[in-house]
């Protein structure tokens, strides 16, 4: 395992950081020793100020993360609480259904929404709205900038992330003694009151945990976005986040050296977020030493 960590985490990490200080282009080894200092970082900053495309990407990243985070956390909380009040069998069926976005193959999941939001009348959304007479022409939803594109990517990723919060909250809810809920029921509390006054206050820490963890995931996820952008379902600039930008510069041709600088920035945010989460989790508690001397 240590070897794998070395090969697939440490060495690549060092390489990425190192390369971000070179003028690496197109994976051409001849740039390998062409050190340029902080030039790439400067350029990134410059682009942010003057390149509308890149500005759009940064803006998209921020909006995408914030709104999707809210959708994920509250969607997950809502589903966990909702299914908590249903009988176990029905509740777990619903929870299972909402795992689908997470475990379906990424290409299939994206394909499904590709058809749903398709810009022609083949798109499900368009045909429904046209049938209802709300619109008369098919609308290219993902190409309306910025909010059309944002809505699509937030919707698609929002559904994927909901299951994480749902599962964490559900397992936390199952640890709360049932008598607390029943006692409140005897006193006449509704499901809504029980959630608001008893369950959610008891889930405070889990909320924080899901919030930070999901933030990190959203910061670094890009696989669904990649397909949506590649298939032209959403606008290229307003459907791309920083993580996807890094990938695209690296593998679809582009300013690789700047992509690498962006990657390093992402990593810094990621690692600090990781440590923050550890603190929140009360890491020492989990570190129980093994018993015995064997």
């Amino acid at each position: 395992m240590l070897v794998m960590v070395l090969i697939f985490y440490l060495i690549p990490l060092v390489m990425t950081v190192y390369l971000s200080f070179t003028s690496m282009k197109n994976w051409n080894v001849k740039y390998l020793f062409d050190l340029v200092g902080f030039y790439n970082y400067h350029r990134l900053f410059y682009m942010f100020q003057h390149d509308p495309s890149f500005k759009a990407i940064v803006l998209t990243t921020i909006v995408f993360i914030l709104i999707t985070l809210v959708v994920n956390v509250f969607g997950g909380l809502g589903l966990a609480l909702g299914t908590f009040f249903l009988s176990d069998i029905v509740g777990s069926k619903f929870r299972l259904l909402w795992l689908l976005p997470r475990i379906a193959p990424i290409a299939v999941y994206s394909l499904v929404w590709y058809y749903f939001f398709h810009e022609t009348s083949i798109g499900t959304l368009n045909s429904i709205l046209m049938e209802l007479g709300i619109i008369h022409q098919p609308i290219p939803w993902g190409q309306i900038i910025p909010w059309g594109a944002w809505s699509v990517i937030i919707f698609v990723n929002g559904l994927v992330g909901v299951s994480f919060g749902m599962i964490v909250f559900t397992s936390a809810l199952n640890q709360i003694p049932k008598e607390l809920v029943i006692a409140a029921r005897v006193d006449g509390a509704s499901a809504w009151t029980i959630s608001k006054r008893i369950l959610i206050p008891l889930l405070k820490w889990h909320l924080l945990y899901v919030l930070t963890w999901q933030f990190l995931s959203l910061l670094t996820t890009y696989c669904h976005l990649f397909l949506l952008v590649e298939w032209n379902l959403v606008n290229r600039d307003y459907g791309t986040t920083l993580a996807l930008y890094v990938y695209n510069t690296a593998f679809l041709g582009g300013e690789l050296d700047q992509g690498l600088a962006a990657a390093v920035i992402l990593s810094v945010i990621g690692v600090s977020g990781g440590f923050l989460t550890l603190k929140l989790l009360g890491f020492e508690k989990m570190m129980k030493r093994p018993r015995g001397d064997v």
Binding site: P177, E179, L180, I182, A183, R185, V186, D187, G188, I198, P201, L202
Partner: peptide, 18 residues
């Protein structure tokens, strides 16, 4: 239960911890 006007004390008392 709420329409029966009963008071119930549980074995583990079920006090709301927060």
């Amino acid at each position: 239960p709420k329409d029966r006007n009963v008071g119930l004390v549980f074995q583990n008392w079920a006090l709301y911890p927060h």
